[in-house]
Computed example of a mutant assay.
Amino acid sequence: MARTGGTDAVTCGGCALSAVGAITAPAVWLSMDRTDRHLGGGFENEGMDYTVLFTELPFVILAGAFVPLLAFTLLVRWRDRRRG
């Protein structure tokens, strides 16, 4: 089955949204007070815990990539069902 131009545009839009989410989620995560405390925002290096970079950050990136992609996919499928 050949792809149409609209399908390629939707696929490209989903990939772009996933990339933006994967970049935005860690930026938001780094700006939170909780993360700041773990990464050295405590008094005299109190509470420095760099394990959050290995435990939380991968999940933040994955969630940032997949949650917008999932929402986009559901919206596209809902739109297609309403059309036909």
Results as ranks from 00 to 15, higher is better:
L75A: 14
E56T: 10
V76K: 11
M48I: 11
S31W: 01
A71Y: 07
S31V: 12
T73H: 02
A25V: 03
P58M: 12
A16H: 05
I23R: 14
A9W: 03
P26N: 11
S18V: 02
A16S: 10
L53V: 00
C15G: 10
A9S: 04
R79K: 03
T73F: 08
A71Q: 10
M1G: 02
G47I: 13
R37V: 01
A16Q: 14
R37K: 09
G21Q: 01
L70S: 14
P68R: 06
G6Y: 00
E46Y: 09
V67P: 03
A16P: 06
G47N: 12
A22P: 02
F59Q: 15
R81W: 06
W29F: 05
G6T: 05
P68W: 03
D36T: 05
L17S: 01
T24S: 12
R81S: 10
T51M: 12
A65Q: 08
N45C: 11
V60Y: 06
M32L: 14
P68C: 10
L39I: 01
R79W: 03
L39Y: 09
A25G: 04
L39T: 00
S18M: 14
D33W: 03
F59I: 03
C12R: 08
C15E: 10
M32S: 04
T7N: 04
V52W: 07
D49K: 07
F72G: 01
P26Q: 11
R82F: 02
F43C: 03
V76D: 14
N45L: 08
R83C: 14
M48P: 03
N45H: 09
L57K: 05
R34N: 11
G84T: 09
R37D: 10
V76W: 01
R82V: 15
R34E: 10
T24W: 08
T51D: 15
H38T: 10
A19L: 05
L53P: 11
V28M: 05
T35Y: 11
F72Q: 02
H38K: 13
A16C: 15
L30E: 09
P68G: 13
P26K: 12
P26E: 11
T7V: 01
G40T: 06
T7F: 00
D8V: 02
T7I: 02
V76Y: 05
P68I: 04
C12P: 03
L74Q: 15
L53E: 09
R37N: 02
S31H: 06
